[in-house]
């Protein structure tokens, strides 16, 4: 993917650029906000990473102008300030995510990739979690390269989990989702469907976590075996 980094601190900028470059991503770096809008209009970037504290026009103003232009590139904001109003303001102006310095590069890359995935998923109705893919329109699922056979109830459950991921879906939401097939779905039935879906995902790297007392969530990667009680 190709991303634009707007960051005035040279050492942070080179660090981030190098990290993404190692992933095989193309990174353009700008030290101030003025040419950024033009750059984003001319090139189809997959992601913009914008520092809040820029000389001249600040990060907030840049995000405002990006959205004013109608550009829908996902924007990740970086800040060294921790006033929560800043975070709220950034998100209100149209930023998609927010990281406070100092951050781990791994986290920046993971969240940046998540933003890109989300924006692509919005364009094409295919949901991804690890090697699991759900094509909402075609109602087909892939685990790696192999097609995943799901009953309609299992599909509803997995679709809800994927749409919400990495957030939690409550049991009652799942019950409501199943309501179109079964008048009286019991929470126990939900547990049975979950365990069936879990079994079908076992070969892949997407895992359904039980959030005792809250519901379920779908996460990428496998929990090490020792962790499962």
């Amino acid at each position: 993917m190709r991303l634009l980094l707007v960051e005035d601190d040279a050492s942070i900028a080179t660090g981030i650029a190098e990290a993404f470059a190692r992933q095989g991503d193309g990174v353009d770096v700008l030290a101030n906000a003025d040419p950024a809008v033009a750059a984003l209009s001319m090139t189809a970037y997959d992601l913009a990473i914008v520092d809040v504290g820029l000389p001249g026009m600040d990060g907030f103003e840049l995000v405002r102008r990006i959205r004013q232009r109608g550009l829908d590139v996902p924007v990740m904001m970086l800040t060294a300030r921790d006033a929560v109003q800043d975070r709220v303001r950034g998100l209100n102006l149209g930023a998609d995510d927010y990281l406070v310095k100092p951050f781990a590069l791994d986290e920046l890359i993971a969240r940046g990739q998540a933003l890109v995935r989300r924006s692509r998923a919005a364009a094409t109705p295919v949901l991804r979690c690890g090697c699991l893919q759900l094509d909402i329109a075609a109602r087909t699922a892939l685990l790696g390269d192999a097609p995943l056979e799901l009953t309609s109830r299992e599909w509803v459950i997995l679709e809800q989990l994927m749409l919400a991921a990495p957030n939690v879906v409550s049991k009652s939401q799942l019950v409501d989702g199943l309501g179109q097939w079964d008048r009286e779905v019991t929470p126990n039935a939900v547990e049975i469907y979950i365990s069936r879906v879990r079994a079908k995902l076992a070969a892949g790297d997407a895992e359904i976590r039980t959030m005792r007392g809250l519901g379920y969530r779908l996460v990428e990667g496998r929990t090490p075996p020792a962790a499962t009680p």
Partner: peptide, 17 residues
Amino acid sequence: AHQLRTPLAALQTRIEL
């Protein structure tokens, strides 16, 4: 916060790389 975190972020980035 700004003055402390910016160099820390740079340091952390470099170390990770």
